[in-house]
Design a protein around this nucleic acid. Structure first.
Length: 311
DNA sequence: TTCAATGTTTAGAC
DNA sequence: GGTCTAAACATTGA
């Protein structure tokens, strides 16, 4: 999946083409993606009927983000909540006769895409076998593709209903929210009796860090990912806090892209992958001290770090 | 053939 | 209640 910077980049791209589009037709090819995990086939069918009835004929008035969720707001204030999880993609393909400049991407092709790395073969022909939700819009088609089928697209009659959902209880602050202050972070971190890497992945203090950025943030902060939060000095907590903001912000400004073949919403390549200092570099030289980067599992996630630079 | 992959949720043990 | 681990979701590609 995209982590926060990738979702944010995708949302910005989609907003340009989806706002003011009317949903003319809805096709759901895999009903379990419309419901929560572990539900019965009968319940999925009911949810799908509600989803289709709820959004057909409505106009899209906004596209936004909360944590790693994409929120598509419709003209009656109802919403579609989409999570891409590990391998979800959203691809907008403009109608063939479109001459609208906003539908042209960097390669002068009429689609915008984002999410899981997209190979040429996947965008050359849509829908493909992993296209599970297809929205026919006024001037194009929006495809939700998901190889591993972990993601979801949920319909809610209002944003208030989303927030009420247990799904959202305990979700942490946005890293760029004014409420996410150093004081708040210090207070929360001081109470955590677990390692900093796992804590960053939990999303219950601050949202947006996935496995890649969590490692990058620990490295930039010169803190071992295994360090217990309670043992972090005030200075280290401040470094982690500042790096959460600067690394995520930098990644967004470079267009997201946690992996090399990640496609941006406008079809151009993301540039953040080349910025990775530790992720995916196990055994390679540390860019600061030249020692060999180590890797170990923390909370069942591969973690890469420098034993010399991080204490 | 076996393993790991951008994320979350859940179950069980202590 | 907190914390830890493993497993679950399912597919692909190295």
């Amino acid at each position: 999946m995209p982590e926060l910077p990738e979702v944010e980049s995708l949302v910005r791209g989609l907003k340009k083409v989806l706002v003011n589009e009317t949903i003319k037709k809805v096709e759901v090819r895999l009903e379990k993606l419309i419901a929560s995990h572990g539900t019965t086939r009968k319940a999925n069918k009911k949810k799908t009927a509600e989803f289709v009835a709820g959004i057909t004929g409505k106009k899209i008035i906004n596209v936004s983000r909360r944590a790693k969720n994409i929120i598509i707001t419709l003209n009656d204030e109802s919403v579609i909540l989409i999570h891409l999880k590990m391998t979800g993609q959203l691809v907008f393909v403009a109608n063939k006769n479109s001459n609208n400049a906003k539908h042209k991407n960097a390669s002068n092709k009429t689609f915008v895409a984002g999410g899981h790395p997209i190979t040429e073969s996947y965008t050359q022909s849509l829908p493909n076998k992993h296209s599970y939700i297809i929205l026919t819009l006024t001037s194009g088609t929006l495809y939700y593709n998901d190889v591993r089928q972990f993601g979801y697209a949920l319909y809610y009659p209002s944003i208030e209903k989303v927030i009420e959902d247990k799904h959202w209880q305990g979700v942490g602050l946005e890293p760029f929210d004014n409420a996410f202050t150093l004081e708040y972070f210090k207070e929360k971190i001081g109470k955590k009796n677990k390692n900093i890497k796992t804590t960053l992945l939990e999303q219950n203090i601050v949202v947006g860090c996935g496995n890649i950025y969590a490692d990058e943030i620990c490295f930039a902060s010169q803190v071992l990912p295994t360090r217990n939060c309670k043992t972090l000095t005030a200075k280290e907590v401040e470094l982690v806090y500042n790096n959460i903001k600067t690394i995520l912000d930098n990644a967004i400004s470079l267009g997201g892209s946690s992996v090399s073949n990640y496609l941006l919403a406008d079809g151009s390549r993301g540039n953040y992958a080349r910025e990775h200092k530790v992720y995916g570099r196990t055994g390679k030289q540390c860019l600061v001290c030249d020692s060999s980067l180590l890797s170990q599992k923390i909370g069942s996630r591969t973690t890469v770090y420098c034993k010399m630079c991080q204490k």
